[in-house]
Write a protein that binds this DNA or RNA. Structure first.
Lengths: 142, 142
DNA sequence: ACTTAATAGTTAGACACCTAACAATAAGGT
DNA sequence: ACCTTATTGTTAGGTGTCTAACTATTAAGT
């Protein structure tokens, strides 16, 4: 199996394994990786981003963002705020509980990454990160 | 954002984008990346692997493999063959149609990978592949 | 021979996405 | 002012996973 095939297989399987491991880790906090990434993206945006903007930041389809925001709203971590100037738009505001869980999980994720990524040569991790980011742009252009 | 955070975010988003792009490409052939990987793993095994063995090859939970095999059986690409010697075990045999689609999509996937991965420096791709594979082992040990 | 532990596969419920189609609203063009 | 196009968010149906619990069967231990 050449590196092309190895790469695509590894990308698929490792991304799933990583997310499953992190989801297990975050389970006790009632959170998943994808949910936390959504809160993180919203928390970092000023003013509160619209649903479309959030979807774009996380490279998911707008339809997918609807259910994610539904779940986070039900958990009390975010709320939908209608735009005063555009009746189509709803902004996603992080609640105080959401901000607290964001910070809490940011710590957990940092520990998890340290436990795992610290065992990889930093220079190789840098190259791998840049390759994967570059690939994302290539795919977007395709 | 340091490389740790960038890496895990890139891994998540790029794996999803890659698979979505490949799924779009394979749509006309009635196939997805995950389905094709399952057929490929079964096709490469002699004798036909059990469901548990397939799940292990692809690093998914056995329960997840049940639905995948259900779908592939419905499509006529594989069939479950009860073991003559162990009533618990079912082997996953690739049908002639499955073999044909496997070869067809192997070509498509090769073209897709060539179109995308050829734009990445081969040495960097090698390093990235090894890093991701190494990470998978680290996660498995955690 | 019998009991206990392990294995294989299944079912149920949930999450995280995708595509396609739709309604409401805003923007752009004439 | 009116019509057409684009945008935003939603709904529906589907795929691909996960965890937890279960049943049937085999293996191991006594």
């Amino acid at each position: 199996m050449n590196y092309d095939e190895r790469f695509s297989k590894a990308l698929h399987m490792t991304a799933r394994q990583w997310r499953a491991a992190l989801d297990r880790r975050l389970r006790d906090l009632g959170m998943s990786e994808a949910a936390w990434m959504t809160i993180a993206a919203a928390a970092k945006s000023t003013p509160a981003p619209s649903q479309s903007e959030l979807a774009q930041m996380l490279a998911v389809e707008p339809a997918s963002m609807v259910a994610m925001i539904d779940r986070l709203t039900r958990l009390g971590f975010v709320e939908r705020v209608p735009s005063p100037s555009d009746r189509r738009v709803k902004h996603v505001a992080v609640t105080a509980a959401g901000q607290a869980v964001y910070e809490r999980i940011h710590q957990e994720a940092t520990v998890f990454r340290a436990e795992t990524l610290s065992r990889i040569d930093p220079q190789k991790l840098t190259i791998a990160t840049e390759v994967i980011e570059q690939l994302q742009l290539i795919i977007a252009d395709a």
